[in-house]
Structure formats: C-alpha cells, structure tokens
C-alpha cells in the first residue's frame, strides 16, 4: 500500500473528513469493522489534540494526516507545525480516581494508547510535530 494523505484545516468540523479518510484506508488494508472504529477514534483524538493544544484553535493552520501500510503494519502519521505537545509523556490516569473526581479532558491520550498498538511522537528537523499511530493487522 502506498502512502496516501489528507490535509485539513485545523477546525473540528473537519474531523469527520479525517475519520472517513482513515476508515477507508484501514478497510482497504484489510481491517474489520471493530479495528476500523478504533483507528478512526484514535486519529480523531490525535487531531482534536492538535486543534485544541498545538494550534490553539487557530482555524487557518493545517493538519497533515498520512497513512501507509505494509507487512501487516498500518501506520497513521499526524503532523502539525504548532506548539509541541508530547502525548506519549502524558501519564496514564488512574481511571477510578479520575472518574470519582469528575475530571474532564485528558481522556483522549489514554484512549489513543488503548486503541492502538503503538503511539510514538517525534519532532522533525523542520520543526513539525509528528505523532505516529500504529496498528497491526490481526493474523
């Protein structure tokens, strides 16, 4: 599978287009409905974080979402040029404590890590942030 991608403005109304794009690519790669839903949700959470935190709700900014796959490994790379935010450094919340204190927010990172097999973050030389979400095709 070649790399394909979509670029969207940093606006929450574009999340649906990102989910549709990633779902279609995941289906073409061979995932079933359950995994497709997980991948789409993880990518939604990643893009929501970019919109709110990296780009601080500036709708003129652009989010790049690229998917690639081979050897049973499906990767989605979400790239932005906003403020650095490393979700892999967010500690897993103690969910019981979290829920009993009615906290809000920060659930997205936890979800991403639960839904995908690997979540990696890097800063490339051009000063863009890259979040790489990986899921393996079930054997």
């Amino acid at each position: 599978m070649n790399t394909t991608g979509i670029q969207v403005e940093s606006r929450t109304e574009r999340l649906i287009a990102v989910r549709d794009f990633v779902s279609e690519a995941a289906r073409a790669f061979g995932f079933g409905d359950e995994d497709i839903s997980k991948i789409a949700l993880a990518v939604d959470e990643a893009c929501t974080n970019v919109i709110k935190h990296a780009y601080r709700s500036d709708p003129t900014k652009i989010i790049h979402v690229n998917v690639s796959g081979g050897n049973g490994t499906f990767e989605v790379v979400i790239r932005d040029e906003g403020v650095r935010f490393n979700p892999t450094q967010v500690l897993p919340p103690d969910m019981k404590e979290y829920l009993t204190h009615f906290r809000r927010g920060g659930l997205g990172v936890y979800l991403m890590k639960s839904l995908m097999d690997r979540v990696e973050y890097s800063i490339s030389p051009g000063k863009s942030n890259e979040l790489r979400l990986t899921k393996y095709l079930p054997r």
């Binding site: 949700l41 959470e45 929501t48 009615f102 906290r103 809000r104 927010g105 659930l107 997205g108």
Partner: peptide
C-alpha cells in the same frame, strides 16, 4: 453512531 472523548467529557462535566 459515534462518540469521542470530547463527548464523554460532557457527561463528566455535568454529573456532579
């Protein structure tokens, strides 16, 4: 059909 953490957060915000 679909819910993300932003939706879940709304339930958290009002339950108390």
């Amino acid at each position: 059909s679909y819910i993300s953490s932003a939706g879940l957060g709304v339930f958290m915000a009002f339950i108390e």
